[in-house]
């Protein structure tokens, strides 16, 4: 593939997936800077391996896999990567105001409940609900059989339902909203 084609493919890849990738990183990072670092490293891998990136919808799953490996890897600090992260951070974070809402009690309760699940169950639920992946896609991403994904999903959701239903004073409020 020529340099121009590589550039065009990378540009299209970025435009189609950057929001999903940033969301994925934000959901698994302790700060926006960590998320930017994860995004930068994953996009660097994508650029380096642009010839290997699958076409269409498969590209998103491939990129999630790269991000998962980047997050699972130990902290890296090569100077070149640091320079890239600093550059991307300066572009993304300079004008950014902290617009995060303080987590309300219901949000905190869901996050606390997710922490009480087995890590694999919580991750499968996050991938299913937040990343909107199918069981088959989660199976590919996590490299576990689809039946195992479904089992984790079922068990995780059951535990979550039980945890969130336990004498939660705010739950009646949610029921009211759901009925609207």
């Amino acid at each position: 593939m020529g340099d121009r084609n590589r550039h065009e493919k990378f540009e299209a890849l970025y435009a189609a997936n950057v929001k999903d990738l940033l969301s994925y990183a934000l959901r698994r990072s302790v700060s926006t800077h960590d998320a930017v670092e994860t995004l930068s490293e994953a996009m660097l891998v994508a650029w380096r391996r642009i010839d290997d990136v699958p076409e269409g919808i498969e590209a998103r799953l491939w990129l999630f896999g790269v991000m998962q490996n980047v997050i699972n890897n130990t902290r890296r600090a090569s100077r070149r990567r640091k320079r890239l992260v600093e550059k991307v951070s300066s572009l993304l974070e300079s004008d950014l105001q902290d617009e995060t809402r303080p987590p309300d009690s219901r949000t905190s309760r869901v996050h606390e409940a997710l922490k009480q699940l087995r890590p694999i169950e919580a991750e499968v639920i996050r991938l299913s609900v937040w990343e909107e992946l199918t069981s088959s896609q989660i199976s590919t991403l996590l490299q576990i059989p689809p039946e195992t994904v479904r089992t984790h999903l079922h068990r995780g959701r059951s535990k979550l339902q039980a945890l969130l239903s336990e004498d939660d004073p705010s739950w009646n409020e949610v029921e009211g909203e759901a009925g609207e």
Binding site: F10, E11, L22, S40, V88, P103
Partner: peptide, 29 residues
């Protein structure tokens, strides 16, 4: 309930910047 707890939905300016600064970010990479 799970969707409502997704804090990533709070970063709309972040996403907007990632799109508007696309050219510069791609050049940096």
């Amino acid at each position: 309930l799970i969707q409502a707890a997704d804090l990533a939905e709070d970063f709309s300016s972040f996403y907007l910047l990632a799109i508007t600064k696309q050219t510069e970010i791609i050049t940096a990479i």
